[in-house]
């Protein structure tokens, strides 16, 4: 192992030290939350100002919620998969905290995506729900979030559930490319991608810009919520192990040993 590698690992551990994480995230959190509220608000306002679709009329405005929600439903899972790698390779306790914090957020985004999608589908397709490839694969994603959350809550010791959950998250990652490309593989009802594609977006700039602003706002929203949930989880574990230490005897556990479970 050369010097550079050692340095890199050192920087990673320094950043991922729970105490330092709490310090840093405490300072960042208000700014992230503010940016999220501001950008999402501005984006949605711009979306309301944007021209209506000549075919879909006013219902096209649902897009400004639906599309970012779908992106972040997948993004949350990607964050969880990366954290799962962190659990399995570096065995870092904060990575497990990150998975646990991201799962409900991802489930909420997925639910929002499905709800807005079916409200949009009712006037446009004439039905709230069809078993189209894209819709089905997103529905599967929702069940997967629920399965992961159920597994996390099935074990009392967070340290024991970390690795099984990480394995499950990684195995489930196959679904993400399936969702992304489902509209290309099976050309059924849901329209193909119009923003993230190789030959550039096919959506008009007047609609694209508000969409992107909302997406950036959602990014900050995700970061803020994820960070807040992680802080809660760290505190929850700290409280649990302090309680255990208190039950054992007078000497309280050192703060850094708490996360190791």
């Amino acid at each position: 192992m050369n010097n550079k590698n050692i340095k890199k690992v050192g920087a990673l551990t320094a950043l991922a030290n729970p105490t330092r994480f709490m310090d840093l995230s405490g300072k960042l959190l208000p700014w992230l939350a503010l940016l999220a509220a501001l950008l999402t608000g501005v984006g949605l306002y711009l979306g309301w100002q944007a021209p209506e679709d000549y075919q879909q009329g006013i219902t096209v405005r649902i897009m400004y919620l639906h599309v970012p929600a779908a992106w972040f439903a997948m993004f949350s899972y990607t964050v969880m998969a990366l954290s799962a790698l962190g659990v399995l390779i570096w065995r870092h306790p904060l990575a497990d905290v990150s998975i646990r914090a991201a799962a409900p957020i991802g489930a909420a985004f997925t639910l929002l995506c499905l709800a807005t999608g079916s409200l949009w589908g009712r006037p446009m397709w004439g039905t709230y729900w069809v078993w189209d490839a894209r819709l089905t694969s997103v529905f599967v994603l929702l069940i997967m979030y629920f399965g992961i959350m159920a597994l996390q809550r099935a074990m009392e010791e967070p340290a024991r559930s970390a690795r099984p959950v990480a394995i499950l998250v990684l195995v489930g990652y196959i679904n993400i490319p399936i969702i992304k490309f489902s509209v290309d593989f099976w050309n059924t009802l849901h329209q193909p991608a119009s923003v993230i594609r190789l030959d550039g977006p096919t959506i008009h700039p007047s609609m694209l810009w508000p969409l992107l602003v909302v997406a950036v706002g959602f990014t900050f929203m995700f970061l803020a919520m994820h960070m807040a949930a992680m802080r809660n989880e760290v505190r929850r574990r700290r409280a649990a192990s302090l309680r255990k230490a208190g039950a054992r005897g007078k000497s309280s556990a050192p703060a850094t040993a708490v996360l190791e479970g």
């Binding site: 089905t136 994603l141 069940i143 399965g147 159920a150 499950l168 195995v171 489930g172 399936i178």
Partner: peptide, 13 residues
């Protein structure tokens, strides 16, 4: 029961 719940999304394809 948890096995079935966790496995279900993967067997759908």
């Amino acid at each position: 029961l948890l096995v079935s719940v966790v496995i279900l999304p993967f067997v759908i394809p």
